[in-house]
Design a protein around this nucleic acid. Sequence first.
DNA 1: ACATCTGGTAAGTCATGACTTACGGTAAGC
DNA 2: GCTTACCGTAAGTCATGACTTACCAGATGT
Lengths: 103, 103
Amino acid sequence: MTYANSLAALADPTRRKIFERLKRGPSPVGVLAEGLPVSRPAVSQHLKVLKEAGLVSEEQEGARRIYRIDPEGLGQLRRWLDGFWDDALGNFKAEAEKGTKKK
Amino acid sequence: MTYANSLAALADPTRRKIFERLKRGPSPVGVLAEGLPVSRPAVSQHLKVLKEAGLVSEEQEGARRIYRIDPEGLGQLRRWLDGFWDDALGNFKAEAEKGTKKK
DNA sequence: ACATCTGGTAAGTCATGACTTACGGTAAGC
DNA sequence: GCTTACCGTAAGTCATGACTTACCAGATGT
């Protein structure tokens, strides 16, 4: 059921920007906030959501917290989407056949 | 940029239920609403969002509107996710190598 | 010890969006 | 034609969540 959290997390544009930025490599909170039009606390709150969704992991390094992408959440979302895709396409073709048979 | 709409659309639980229900085959609005804890107009509004995201297509059939899954939106979302996955995993491994080299 | 840099949390504001009921409009049945 | 299904749209309510500023705590450096 956790793919739901991933979907909710990635639905927000700001959170997606943070996530895309993290794709280029790990980063502390302050650096992330510099490239965004929102305050640092806002970034902190977004990172919390991303972390709870399993999309991001946190590593304490002295006074700083380094955030990086966690493949776990992304993997679960991908598996759900792939399964959905297969089912939907299967029924789609089945429907198409029924349609042609009707003719 | 339309994968963003798909994400936003699928982030809502009710909308996801509708979408999952549609996976089993096309359906008119009224039937969809029967299996849900919300009113029929609510379902109508959700279907509008799903349609604008390219996740669902509509077919007028007499007085009824049949809704079915549109592979287009799902495909775009999948492509985005796959691309993201590849990039993220690539950088992830590069980071891991850097980590081992440091030791 | 003190100032500084790090960043998470609290509290409050404000917009968005998920619902409701009420209505209107088109197609099918009698 | 008139009623009865089907469904979309309008308008209004209400909760949620994305932001802000203010504050607090731990690590670093002098």
